[in-house]
Amino acid sequence: MEVLLKVTDTVRNLRETKLSGLRPLSEFFDYQRLSKPADLNQATTRISYNTRYFSGNYLLIVVLLAIYAVFMNYWLLISLAFLVGGFALINKYAPEATQFGEHTITQKHLYAGLFIIGIPLFFWAGPFATFFSVVFCSGLCIFVHAAILEPGVESDYAAIQENV
């Protein structure tokens, strides 16, 4: 129960801090502000500003790409469901030791069986390839968007406020 409360608090905190800064889609996909940067210095300036300004939108892109990648990798989805579901079922239905014939099966035995089957299944599913594909795809999307989108008029005022 404590873990569920911590997860709930973490999700609420994330929503209040990061996702509260979501910019409207009309601003995020403003095709009139798209242009090729003149040089690397201008691209770096745009990336620096846009990654801070659209941080909530970029976080949402990373989360959506991660969810998509997990759902497209069926073995990874099955192995995660097996591990998480097995852990939950063992906690719920087997808190005490059970006598099965001459053998006593404890929670420790059940966890060992779960991990002996689940961990190799998880690594066979290719979690590292999925992770790095999400990192690469989201990084590419974010950096290209941040580099070609001209900062709005408010970026000029942000520089003035930093100097004051």
Score class of each variant (00 low, 15 high):
L77A: 15
L64V: 08
V62N: 00
I47G: 02
I47F: 02
T44D: 00
T44W: 08
T51C: 15
I105H: 06
R52I: 08
Y53D: 00
T104L: 07
N73M: 10
T44P: 00
I105E: 05
S55I: 03
L83P: 07
V62I: 15
Y53S: 01
A88H: 13
G101Q: 10
T45I: 02
A66W: 03
L65C: 06
L60Q: 06
I105T: 13
Y53C: 02
T104V: 14
A97S: 15
T104E: 06
L59E: 00
H103W: 10
F82I: 07
V84D: 09
I90M: 09
V63Y: 04
G101N: 10
I61T: 09
K92I: 13
L65T: 04
Y93V: 12
G86E: 05
F54T: 09
G86S: 06
L60R: 06
R46P: 04
P95R: 12
T51Y: 02
L89S: 08
L83M: 13
E96K: 13
Y93G: 13
H103Q: 12
F71K: 10
G56R: 12
T44C: 07
L60H: 02
V70S: 06
V84A: 15
L76P: 03
S79H: 04
I61S: 04
S55L: 01
P95N: 11
V63T: 05
I90P: 04
A43C: 10
H103L: 13
F54I: 07
N50Y: 04
S48N: 11
I67M: 14
I78Q: 05
L60C: 08
Y68V: 10
L76D: 02
Y58E: 02
A81G: 11
T51K: 09
A94Q: 09
V62L: 11
L83F: 06
N73Y: 09
L77W: 14
L77C: 14
G85K: 09
Y68Q: 07
T98N: 08
V70T: 14
V70K: 10
K108M: 05
M72A: 08
Y49Q: 01
K92W: 11
P95Q: 12
H103C: 02
Y74T: 14
L59D: 00
L89E: 02
S48R: 14
N73W: 09
G56D: 05
N91L: 12
L59N: 00
G86Y: 04
M72G: 14
L80M: 14
A81S: 15
I78L: 15
A94T: 11
N73I: 08
K92M: 11
K108I: 03
T45V: 03
G86I: 02
A69C: 04
L64E: 00
G56K: 11
L64Q: 01
T45Q: 12
E96R: 13
A66Y: 05
N57Q: 07
F82L: 15
T44I: 05
S79D: 04
L65A: 07
